[in-house]
Design a protein around this nucleic acid. Structure first.
Length: 814
RNA sequence: GCGGGUAUGGCGGAAUUGGCAGACGCGCAGGAUUUAGGAUCCUGUGGAGCAAUUCGUGUGGGUUCGACCCCCACUACCCGCACCA
C-alpha cells in the first residue's frame, strides 16, 4: 500500500460538498473574463422562472449536462462562460402576490433566493458574478430600449385586432400560448376579443427565420418544428371580379385547378360582407348576420371541434366570375375559411381539396374534375389530391400538363392578364405584445390626444413599475396600472401637453428574448452590452433547453437578435450556433411530474439523502438525454455505490510508476470515450465507461497514483466535489479545476490480443483469441482448425470467407 | 388528417452505424461476513432444455455470407401542428 495515502475516513458527502462549494464561491473559480489568448466557449441553459415550488428535478438535467460540457472545456483550455439568471416576470408570481397581498417583487426575491441556494447545492459551475434578473430595472431598462428601437423601425405598432383572450387569467395570449383552444397556463377556455394591442412584426423576418436555419446546428426536429410553425407556402393570389364590381382576391397553392373552381368562400369576418350589407346588395342579410354572430360566439376550441361538419350560408345577390373561363360562381360564407390566413377568402375546387369537397357534398355544389390520376378516381367518394401523379384535364391551355407545370403556366397567365400572380404566404402571425397585467416590463409609450402614440425618450429609461398594492385586473380586463392616475398621467414628449402612459405591460417572453446578450456584460450602464464583450463572446456556442420553447422563446429570441443585428448592436445574424434539447424527467409511474398526480420528487430531498454528486451522476445516468425518462429512486443507489467505490479506491493506492500495462488499454479507451461522449451528450455511456475502468482497477488490486489521478480528472465534470476532495487527500497539487484534461494515445487504446468469433453461415461456432493485428489468411486458417468449425463444415464446400478485423471470421458453406 | 419520434431482458438502458444482441446500472437468486437486520464483498442472472442445442430486438415479407441496424407493407404508443386553401 502507498504509505502517504490517507484516511479510511467515511465518505461524508455533506461536509465534502459544503467545503468545495465554499472554495468555488470564495475563489470565484468559475468567473469568466475576456481573454483573447484562449479560445472561448459560451455554454447556455434556459434560465428558470423562479416559481414558488422551488427547483424541479427536471432543471438539473439540463444544467448538469451543460455543466459537464463546460467543466471539461475549461480543463481543455477554453475560456468558458456559463451564466445563470432569473426569468422572473410573469403570471404565477403575480397571482400569488394578488392572493396574498404581497408585492410581487418581494415574492420574486424570496423565490430567487431559494432557487439560488438549490442550484448552488448542486455544485454547478455558473459564473454567479454575472447573475441577472429580468425584473431588475437595470435589466428591463434594456428590454424597453429594444422595444423603442423596434418601434422606431416600424416593427412595433398598435392595432385593433381580434386577440386570444384567456377567460381565467383575464389576459391576452399569443397564438403560441393557446393550446387546444385553452390557456397554456391555466387551461381556461380562450375566446376571441377585439382589443387594441401592441404588436411586433415578426412576420417581417419570416423568410430569414426559415432560411437562416441552414446556418445553424440545431437538432433536426427543432428546425422542422420552426419551419412548420412559420409555415411558408408557395402559391398564387388570384383576383375574381364580382357582380358588385368589387374584385375578390384569394390565395391558393393550387392555381393549376382554377378551371375546377365551382364556388367561392369568404370567412365570416371578411370586410366585403359589411360593405355589401351596407350597400344593400345582399338579399339574405338576416341569415348572413346570424351566421356571423354564431361564428363570433364560438371559441377557437369550438371552431376546431366542429371541423367534421362544414357549415355556411350562401350570399344571395352577389356572384363571382372565374377569371380564366368567365364562369359565374356563387359565394358562400363559412368559418372553415380563416380570416387570419391568406386573404380570408378562397376559391373552392371540390374535386381536388378535401375541405371543399366536404362542403360541396353538403350543399350539393358541382364537382368538376380537372386533375386525373393514373388510375381513375371516384370523385363521389373523395377528392383527388395527389399532386405527384396527376395530369390536367378539362382545363383549356393546361390540359395534359403535370400539376407542377400547370401551376407555372397559370402563374404566367395570371400575371399577363393582371389577374394576380405568384405569392408566398406564412402561417406565422405578428406577435401580440401587450398584457393587461402588472408584473411585466411597462411599455415605454405615451398617448397624446394631439400627437398620437409617442415613445418616451431613452434618457427616461428605465420606466419603472410604480409600487402599488392592488394587482387585480380591471373589470373589462384593463391593466391594474390603469387605476394609478398619478403614474398614468404624464406629459407628451413631443408637444409637452397632457398625455397618458400605456398601461399594458410586455409579455413574459420579452425579457428572455435577449438575456444571453446581457450575460456578456451584465453590469454595463451605458449599453445593453459592450461591443467588445459581444464580439468576444457571441454567438452562444451551445444552447440546451426544452422542446416546449421551440416555437416560443427560441423563435422570439432569434427574431429580436436578427433585429439587433440589422441595427448594428450585435455582431452575428444568429444568436445560437448549436441548439439541443433534453427529455423530460417523469414521475416513477411514467407520468409527467405534477403536484396533482402526487409523483413529484424534490431535488432537495435527493441532495440531502444522497448528495449532489450522486444526484448529478444519477440524472446523467438515467438514460438517453434527449428522451423522457421516469425517475427511479432505487437506481440512485447504484450511483451512490459507484462514488463510495471511488472513495474507497483512495485507500487502495498501489505501488507503481505511471500506468500499469494491464490498465493501459482500458484507461486510454476511457479517456477517449468519456471525452467523445460528453461532446455528444451521452453522459450515460461515459459514466458506464468510468464504471468499467473502476471495476478494472478493483480487479487489479487498486490504482497507481497516476491511474487514480487520471480517473479523478475524468470523473470531475460529473462529480466535482468528491473528485476535488480525493485529489487533495491524495496530495496532488492545486485543484482539478486548474489542471488539464488528459489526452489519449490511439495506439494504446487497442489490446494486444482480441477475441474474435468464428461463424459458419452466420452462426457462432467458436471463439478465438488472436493477436489484434493478425493477417486475414492466418485468422481464417486458425478458424478452420477449430474442431467445432471443422464439424460444422463436414461435407460442405466453402463458398465465401469473410474476415472482419478484430471482430469475426465467417465461413459461408454449402 | 399532416409532420416528427419511439418500440431491445423483470426495470432504466447499451450496441463502434451491416459484424459475437443485451455494455453499464437497478432488481433478483445463491454464498461470505454479521447475534440479527442493514451495509459491504464474491458468484450467477434473456427464454426453453440435464445437455449438445435451440428460440430470441413490436408484426409480416425482402436484400445480404451476415440485419436491432437497409428496403417494402403493417401495428401500437408518445410528441408537435391541426379547416393554413
Amino acid at each position: 500500500m502507498y504509505e502517504g495515502s490517507k484516511h479510511t475516513v467515511k465518505y461524508d458527502f455533506k461536509a465534502v460538498e459544503a467545503k468545495w462549494q465554499k472554495v468555488w464561491e470564495d475563489q470565484h473559480t468559475f468567473h469568466a473574463e475576456i481573454d483573447h489568448s484562449k479560445p472561448k466557449f459560451y455554454g447556455l441553459v434556459e434560465f428558470p422562472y423562479p416559481s414558488g415550488q422551488g427547483l424541479h428535478v427536471g432543471h438539473p438535467r439540463s444544467y448538469t449536462a451543460m455543466d459537464i460540457i463546460c467543466r471539461k472545456k475549461r480543463l481543455q483550455g477554453y475560456n468558458v462562460l456559463y451564466p445563470m439568471g432569473w426569468d422572473a416576470f410573469g403570471l404565477p408570481t403575480e397571482n400569488y402576490a394578488l392572493k396574498n397581498h404581497i408585492n410581487p417583487e418581494i415574492v420574486t426575491a424570496k423565490n430567487v433566493a431559494r432557487f439560488k441556494s438549490q442550484l448552488k447545492a448542486l455544485g454547478l459551475s455558473f459564473d454567479w458574478d454575472r447573475e441577472i434578473n429580468t425584473t431588475d430595472p437595470e435589466y428591463y431598462k434594456w428590454t424597453q430600449w429594444i422595444f423603442l428601437q423596434l418601434y422606431k423601425k416600424g416593427l412595433a405598432y398598435k392595432k385593433e385586432t381580434t386577440v386570444n383572450w384567456c377567460t381565467g387569467c383575464k389576459v391576452v395570449l399569443a397564438n403560441e400560448e393557446v393550446v387546444d383552444g385553452c390557456c397554456e397556463r391555466c387551461h381556461s377556455p380562450v375566446v376571441q376579443r377585439v382589443k387594441s394591442q401592441w404588436m411586433l412584426k415578426i412576420t417581417a423576418y419570416a423568410d430569414r427565420l426559415i432560411d437562416d436555419l441552414d446556418q445553424v446546428d440545431y437538432l433536426d426536429r427543432i428546425k422542422v418544428q420552426q419551419r412548420n410553425w412559420i409555415g411558408r407556402s408557395h402559391g398564387a393570389e388570384i383576383t375574381f371580379d364580382t357582380t358588385t364590381g368589387d374584385a375578390l382576391t384569394v390565395y391558393t397553392t393550387r392555381a393549376d385547378t382554377l378551371f375546377g373552381c365551382t364556388y367561392m368562400v369568404v370567412s365570416p369576418e371578411h370586410a366585403y360582407i359589411d360593405k355589401w350589407m351596407k350597400a344593400g346588395l345582399i338579399r339574405n342579410p338576416e341569415a348572413i348576420t346570424a351566421y356571423q354572430e354564431e361564428a363570433a360566439r364560438k371559441s377557437d376550441f369550438e371552431r376546431t371541434e366542429l371541423n367534421k361538419d362544414k357549415t355556411g350560408v350562401k350570399i344571395e345577390g352577389v356572384e363571382a366570375i372565374n377569371p380564366v373561363n368567365g364562369k359565374v360562381v356563387p359565394i358562400f360564407i363559412s368559418d372553415y375559411v380563416l380570416a387570419t390566413y391568406g386573404t380570408g377568402a378562397i376559391m373552392a375546387v371540390p374535386a381536388h381539396d378535401t375541405r371543399d369537397w366536404e362542403f360541396a357534398k353538403k350543399f350539393g355544389l358541382p364537382i368538376i374534375e380537372v386533375v386525373k390520376g393514373k388510375t381513375p378516381s371516384n370523385l363521389d367518394e373523395a377528392a383527388f389530391t395527389d399532386v405527384a401523379t396527376g395530369t390536367l384535364v378539362n382545363s383549356g391551355f393546361l390540359d395534359g400538363l403535370s400539376v407542377e407545370d400547370a401551376k407555372e403556366k397559370m402563374y404566367a397567365w395570371l400575371e399577363e392578364n393582371h389577374k394576380g400572380g405568384k405569392k408566398v404566404n406564412f402561417k406565422l402571425r405578428d406577435w401580440v405584445f401587450s398584457r393587461q397585467r402588472y408584473w411585466g416590463e411597462p411599455i415605454p409609450m405615451v398617448y397624446c390626444e394631439k400627437c398620437g402614440w409617442q415613445p418616451i425618450p431613452e434618457s427616461e429609461l428605465p420606466l419603472r413599475l410604480p409600487e402599488i398594492t392592488d394587482f387585480e385586473p380591471g373589470p373589462d380586463g384593463e391593466s391594474p396600472l390603469a387605476r394609478h392616475t398619478d403614474w398614468v398621467n404624464t406629459t407628451c414628449p413631443c408637444c409637452g401637453g397632457p398625455a397618458k402612459r400605456e398601461t399594458d405591460t410586455m409579455p413574459q417572453w420579452a425579457g428572455s428574448s435577449w438575456y444571453f446578450l446581457r450575460y456578456c456584460d451584465p453590469h454595463n450602464t451605458k449599453e445593453l452590452a459592450s461591443k467588445e464583450a459581444l464580439e468576444y463572446w457571441s454567438p452562444v456556442d451551445w444552447y440546451n433547453g426544452g422542446m416546449e420553447h421551440t416555437t416560443l422563446h427560441l423563435l422570439y429570441s432569434r427574431f429580436w437578435h436578427k433585429f439587433l443585428y440589422d441595427i448594428g448592436v450585435v455582431p452575428t445574424a444568429e444568436p445560437y450556433r448549436k441548439r439541443t434539447s433534453h427529455g423530460m424527467i417523469l414521475g416513477e409511474n411514467g407520468e409527467k411530474m405534477s403536484k396533482s398526480r402526487g409523483n413529484v420528487v424534490n431535488p432537495d430531498d435527493i441532495v440531502n439523502e444522497y448528495g449532489a454528486d450522486t444526484m448529478r451522476l444519477y440524472e446523467m445516468f438515467i438514460g438517453d438525454f434527449e428522451k423522457a425518462a421516469p425517475w427511479n429512486t432505487s437506481s440512485i443507489k447504484g450511483c451512490k455505490r459507484f462514488l463510495e467505490r471511488i472513495w474507497a479506491l483512495g485507500d487502495k493506492i498501489v505501488e507503481g510508476e505511471g500506468v500499469r500495462p494491464t490498465i493501459e488499454a482500458t484507461l486510454h479507451r476511457t479517456i477517449k470515450k468519456v471525452g467523445e461522449d460528453i461532446d455528444s451528450l451521452k453522459a450515460n455511456t461515459a459514466i458506464a465507461q468510468l464504471m468499467i475502468l473502476v471495476n478494472t482497477l478493483y480487479d487489479n488490486g487498486g490504482a497507481t497514483r497516476e491511474e487514480f489521478r487520471t480517473l479523478l480528472i475524468l470523473l470531475n465534470p460529473f462529480a466535482p466535489h468528491i473528485t476535488e476532495e480525493l485529489w487533495q487527500q491524495a496530495g496532488f497539487p492545486d485543484q482539478i479545476a486548474h489542471t488539464s484534461w488528459p489526452v489519449y494515445d490511439p495506439a494504446k487504446c487497442v489490446e494486444q490480443t482480441v477475441e474474435i468469433a468464428v461463424q459458419v453461415n452466420g452462426k457462432v461456432k467458436a471463439r478465438l483469441t488472436v493477436p489484434t493485428d493478425i493477417e486475414q489468411a492466418d485468422a481464417i486458417a486458425r478458424a478452420k482448425a477449430e474442431p467445432a468449425v471443422a464439424a460444422a463444415l463436414e461435407g460442405k464446400t466453402i463458398v465465401k470467407e469473410i474476415y472482419v478485423k478484430g471482430k469475426l471470421v465467417n465461413l459461408a458453406a454449402k
